[in-house]
Design a protein around this nucleic acid. Structure first.
Length: 145
DNA sequence: GCCAACGTTGGC
DNA sequence: GCCAACGTTGGC
């Protein structure tokens, strides 16, 4: 099991939208960055991820689960772009802001801090656990429950 | 709204 | 294959 982070501008696709998509989930389409695509190719069903609001909010707001592994992006004209499907699992009771992440020395190596433009990125299990705790969420429930 | 950082494109 | 020009992302 690996852990990830999905970034979205809330006015385009927010965690509320994601929750309304329900258990059938939604394609994480529109990614046109090779690094991000390659990470999606590594994802497995059941992997967990953070849902992060960029620009407005700038905070980790919820937990998602991968429910379909990489497949062609239906919004791409050619076949080289792929995406996964994700479903919303739960909210973070307290969103964990980018400021809070930057203020925590244990999180200084997060991709979120060091490569702010990458929209799909891996998260270390220790980082995932800590952010769950900071957000008031039981890490075991969020990570495996 | 600005701009730094980064990725991509295209001329050579 | 290099690199300048351009476009986009996202923090501020």
């Amino acid at each position: 099991m690996r852990y990830w982070l999905f970034k979205s501008e809330p006015f385009k696709w927010s965690f509320d939208h994601q929750k309304k998509a329900g258990a059938k989930g939604q394609e994480w389409d529109g990614v046109r960055n090779y690094q991000a695509r390659n990470f999606m190719r590594e994802m497995k069903n059941g992997d967990r991820g953070f849902f992060y609001h960029s620009n407005e909010g700038k905070a980790v707001v919820g937990i998602v689960e991968i429910i379909a592994e990489a497949h062609p992006d239906s919004t791409a004209k050619d076949g080289k772009w792929e995406c996964v499907d994700i479903t919303a699992l739960m909210d973070l009771p307290q969103p964990v802001t980018l400021d809070a992440v930057k203020a925590e020395p244990k999180l200084k190596d997060m991709v979120l801090v060091n490569n702010s433009r990458l929209s799909v990125q891996p998260v270390e299990p220790s980082e995932f656990r800590l952010i769950c705790e900071m957000g008031g969420l039981d890490p075991d429930t969020a990570m495996t429950g």
